[in-house]
Design a protein around this nucleic acid. Structure first.
Length: 676
RNA sequence: GCCCCUGUAGCUCAGUUGGUUAGAGCAACCGACUCAUAAUCGGUAGGUCGAGUGUUCGAGUCACUCCGGGGGCACCA
C-alpha cells in the first residue's frame, strides 16, 4: 500500500432524526460506514467521517411543545443520547454535529441564494390544510378524518388505508387537526420551489458516469423518465428550522438543510483542525466524497442533492452507497414481537462488537435487506470469533507464558503458511474497499481455520511432554500467535476493541495494514486474558423481553387485537369442519351461586336443549341475554365443572371483563342451524 | 393497480459471460484429541436450486406465468 497515493476522502452517514432513539436498523448504516472509514484509515489514507443530528422539522417542534420544552432543549438531549449510543457501538466519527448550527445556517442560506440568483427558484401559491387554532399549516399526516370514498374513519390526510384511495387532506370528511382537534380550513400560501427540471441534463449524464450502484442507478433513471417536478423547499411559520433569507415567515423545509448538514459538520471540523473545506466541496479538489444511506432516502441524495450542489457551485458526490433495511428473524422489526430493538437495550446486555461482526458477515455492496437471525447471530459469533479466532491466541498463549517466559521464538517454523496468510491482504483489502464485507469475513475465517489446523497438526501439547521436541513448541506457538495477529489486523476495521485488547496481549503497537507481513519475533507477550466471551442465549432473551416492555411503556405504541394476539397457525379445512357450530337461543340465563364469573345458560338448539356455563358474568346481566340468539360449539366434549356439567360453549370476543361480546347471528337464523 | 428487488441444504449465504456428479460456514451425526472460553481436528449425512411452462445439444444461471418475502410509484417528497 505504501506505493499507492494517499487518498483524501470525506465520508458521511445519513443524519439520524432528532426525535427518537437509535435502534438496530440505524446501526446497520453506521456500522457499515464505520468499518469502511476505519479500513481507509488503516490504509493510511486521509479520511474524515462526519455526521450530525437532523434537528429540524414539524415533528420535532411538536414533540418539544408536547414535552413543554424548547426545541433547542429537545435536540440537545437527543443528540447526547445519540452520541452516547454511537460511541458505545464504537462508531468513530471525526465530527458529530447538528443541522441546527451557525455553519449550517450560513451554508444553507448561501446555497439558496446561489440557486435563486441563478434562476433555479420559483415562487407560487398553493392551497393547504390549516389549523385555525394552532395557526399553522398542517402536513398531510397531521390531518385525520373520514375517507371521502369508502367512509372509513380515522384516516390520514393523504390516502385511505382501507380502500387505498388517495386524496387531498382538504377532501377528508369531518377532518380534524391531529394537533388541536380543530377543523382545518383551506388556506393559500406562497411556497418556494427548486426547479429540479433545470438539472435534467446534468442528472442524466451524472447517472451515466457510474457514480451509483447499478440497482440504485436504475431506480433513479426510472424516476427520470417522468418529468422532474419542482421540489417544494419552503414551509410556513411556525416551523422549526432556518428562515429563508429573503422571505420572512418562510422556512427551509427540513430536507433542504439536512444534507447541507454534512457540509456544515465538516466545516465545523475544518475550522477546528485546519482542514481546507473547499478541497472537499469545490469542483476539482482531487478528493473523494461518499454518502452512505438507506434505500428509503435515495431520492433526496441521488436526485435533489446532486442538483442542488451543482446549481450552487459545489461538487457532486463520487458515490452514494445504498444499503437495505434490517429485518429480525426474517421479518420487519416489530414492537409487539420485541424485535424493535433500541441500541440502548442491546448495549445493556451485549457487547457492540458481536453485532458489528454479525453485520459485517452479512453486509454486501448491494441494496438487499439484511436479516438479523438471532439464533444464527449467537452461533456465528460464538463459533467464528470465540471458537476460531480468539481460540488461536488462547491455545498458544499458555505454552509461551508458562514454558518460555512469554518469549516468542526468533523464527517462524512455517514461513510459507504465514506468507499465505499475509498474501491474502490484498484480496481482503479489495473486498473491504468495495464494501463486500461478507466476502471479506469469509476469507478471514477460512484463514482462521488454516491456523487451527496447523496447531492441530503440530500438536504442541504432545511435543511439550517430550524432551526432544519441547523446543519446537515455542516456535509452533509463535507461529500461531503471529497468525492470530494477522487475523486481528484483518478484523480490526470491524472489531477495533478486540484489536486493542489483542495489541495489549501481544504487547505491540497499534496494528496497521502495512505491518502485518512483519511477524513478531524474539518478542515478549503479556498475560492472556479472554479477549471475547461467548454470547449467552439469556442475554438475547433479555433484549427481546426488554424490547417488549418498552412497547407497553411507550405512549404511541402500536397495539390492537392482531398485535396482542396474532393470528394462529394455518389449519386445514378438515380441522375446521370438526367443529360443529350451531345457532342457539338462550331460553334461560341465571346467576350461579358461589360463582364469580359464570352464568348458567339454557340453550335451545331447536329440539334439544343444552346446559352451558359461560364466563360472561362480568359483561352481561342474565335478563339481557334471555331470548337472544347466539352461536355455540355443539359438539364440544361435556365438561364437569364445580357447579355442574357444561355441555358446550358459547362464542364471544374481546379481551375480557366488561369488554366481552357474544356472537349474534343476523335476522333469519333459526336455533339448530349449522354454522359453516 | 403498475413497477423493481428477492426466494439455492435445518440456519446464514456463495454460485463468474447458461456447460461435466450444485459449493462454504454454522447446526446434526460418527470418530479423534485435550493446549484452548465443552473450544479444535477428521469424516458422514443433508438440496426435484419457490412452483410450472418455454428457449437451448445443455438452465440454479435466459424468457413467460403463478406463489411467498421486501420495497417503490399511484401528483408526498
Amino acid at each position: 500500500m505504501s506505493n499507492t497515493e494517499r487518498r483524501r476522502i470525506l465520508v458521511t452517514s445519513a443524519l439520524p432524526y432528532a426525535n427518537g432513539p437509535i435502534h438496530l436498523g440505524h446501526l446497520v448504516e453506521y456500522i457499515q460506514t464505520d468499518i469502511w472509514v476505519r479500513f481507509q484509515k488503516m490504509q493510511g489514507h486521509e479520511c474524515y467521517y462526519v455526521c450530525a443530528d437532523d434537528a429540524h422539522g414539524t415533528p420535532i417542534m411538536l414533540r418539544a411543545k408536547q414535552e413543554g420544552i424548547e426545541p433547542e432543549q429537545l435536540i440537545k438531549r437527543i443528540s447526547e443520547e445519540h452520541q452516547a449510543d454511537f460511541s458505545e457501538f464504537l462508531i468513530d466519527f471525526d465530527n458529530y454535529y447538528s443541522t441546527h448550527s451557525d455553519e449550517n445556517k450560513t451554508l444553507s442560506a448561501g446555497i439558496y441564494t446561489a440557486l435563486r440568483d441563478a434562476g433555479h427558484i420559483n415562487k407560487r401559491s398553493i392551497h393547504q390544510a390549516y389549523d385555525p387554532v394552532e395557526n399553522m399549516f398542517l402536513p398531510d399526516r397531521f390531518v385525520k378524518g373520514t375517507c371521502p370514498k369508502c367512509g372509513t374513519d380515522d384516516q390520514y390526510g393523504d390516502n385511505c388505508e382501507a380502500c387505498g384511495t388517495t386524496y387531498d387532506a382538504t377532501e377528508l370528511k369531518n377532518a380534524v387537526s391531529v394537533i388541536s382537534g380543530a377543523t382545518p380550513i383551506e388556506k393559500a400560501s406562497d411556497h418556494y420551489f427548486f426547479k429540479l427540471a433545470d438539472f435534467t441534463d446534468m442528472l442524466n449524464s451524472w447517472l451515466n458516469e457510474g457514480h451509483l450502484q447499478e440497482e440504485t442507478a436504475n431506480k433513479v433513471k426510472e424516476w427520470m423518465q417522468d418529468e422532474l417536478r419542482e421540489w417544494d423547499i419552503s414551509r410556513d411559520a411556525p416551523y422549526w428550522g432556518f428562515e429563508i433569507p429573503d422571505a420572512p415567515g418562510k422556512y427551509f423545509y427540513v430536507w433542504l438543510d439536512a444534507p447541507i448538514g454534512y457540509m456544515a459538520s465538516f466545516k465545523n471540523l475544518c475550522d477546528k483542525n485546519n482542514i481546507e473545506f473547499d478541497d472537499f466541496w469545490k469542483p476539482g479538489g482531487n478528493t473523494e466524497l461518499y454518502h452512505f444511506i438507506g434505500k428509503d432516502i435515495v431520492r433526496f441524495h441521488a436526485l435533489f442533492w446532486p442538483a442542488v450542489l451543482t446549481g450552487s457551485g459545489y461538487r457532486t458526490p463520487d458515490n452514494i452507497f445504498v444499503h437495505g433495511f434490517l429485518t429480525v428473524d426474517g421479518q420487519k422489526m416489530s414492537k409487539s414481537r420485541g424485535t424493535f430493538i433500541m441500541a440502548r437495550t442491546y448495549l445493556e446486555q451485549l457487547q457492540p462488537e458481536y453485532l458489528r461482526y454479525y453485520f459485517a458477515a452479512k453486509l454486501s455492496n448491494g441494496v438487499d435487506d439484511i436479516d438479523l437471525n438471532l439464533e444464527d447471530f449467537m452461533q456465528r459469533v460464538n463459533s467464528d470469533i470465540v471458537g476460531k479466532v480468539v481460540n488461536i491466541a488462547s491455545r498458544c498463549a499458555g505454552f509461551i507464558k508458562k514454558k518460555f517466559n512469554g518469549q516468542l521464538s526468533a523464527e517462524l517454523p512455517a514461513p510459507d503458511l504465514f506468507k499465505e496468510m499475509t498474501d491474502a491482504s490484498e484480496k481482503i483489502a479489495g473486498l473491504f474497499e468495495s464494501r463486500k464485507y461478507n466476502q471479506a469475513i469469509r476469507e478471514i475465517m477460512a484463514l482462521a481455520d488454516k491456523a487451527n489446523q496447523y496447531i492441530d497438526d503440530e500438536a504442541p501439547w504432545v511435543k511439550i511432554k517430550n524432551e526432544d521436541t519441547v523446543a519446537e513448541v515455542q516456535a509452533i506457538c509463535t507461529q500461531g500467535i503471529n497468525m492470530f495477529r494477522v487475523l486481528v489486523a484483518y478484523l480490526k476495521p470491524v472489531m477495533p476493541a478486540l484489536a486493542e485488547g489483542s495489541e495489549a496481549f501481544l504487547n505491540c503497537d497499534a496494528i496497521n495494514w502495512s505491518d502485518i507481513s512483519k511477524p513478531l519475533l524474539s518478542h515478549e507477550i503479556s498475560q492472556f486474558k479472554p479477549l471475547m466471551t461467548r454470547i449467552e442465549k439469556e442475554k438475547i432473551d433479555a433484549i427481546i423481553e426488554a424490547s417488549r416492555q418498552n412497547l407497553s411503556t411507550q405512549a404511541a405504541a402500536i397495539s390492537g387485537p392482531l398485535a396482542d394476539d396474532p393470528i394462529s397457525d394455518e389449519i386445514e379445512f378438515d380441522d375446521f369442519a370438526k367443529v360443529d357450530l350451531r345457532i342457539a337461543r338462550i331460553i334461560k340465563a341465571e346467576h350461579v351461586k358461589g360463582a364469580d364469573k359464570l352464568l348458567q345458560l339454557t340453550l335451545d338448539l331447536g329440539g334439544a336443549t343444552r346446559n352451558v356455563f359461560a364466563g360472561i358474568k362480568s359483561a352481561y346481566a342474565p335478563e339481557e341475554l334471555e331470548g337472544k340468539l347466539t352461536v355455540m360449539v355443539a359438539n364440544l366434549k361435556p365438561r364437569k365443572m364445580r357447579f355442574g356439567m357444561s355441555e358446550g360453549m358459547v362464542l364471544a370476543a374481546g379481551p375480557g371483563g366488561k369488554d366481552l361480546w357474544i356472537l349474534n347471528p343476523d335476522d333469519g337464523a333459526q336455533p339448530g342451524m349449522k354454522v359453516k
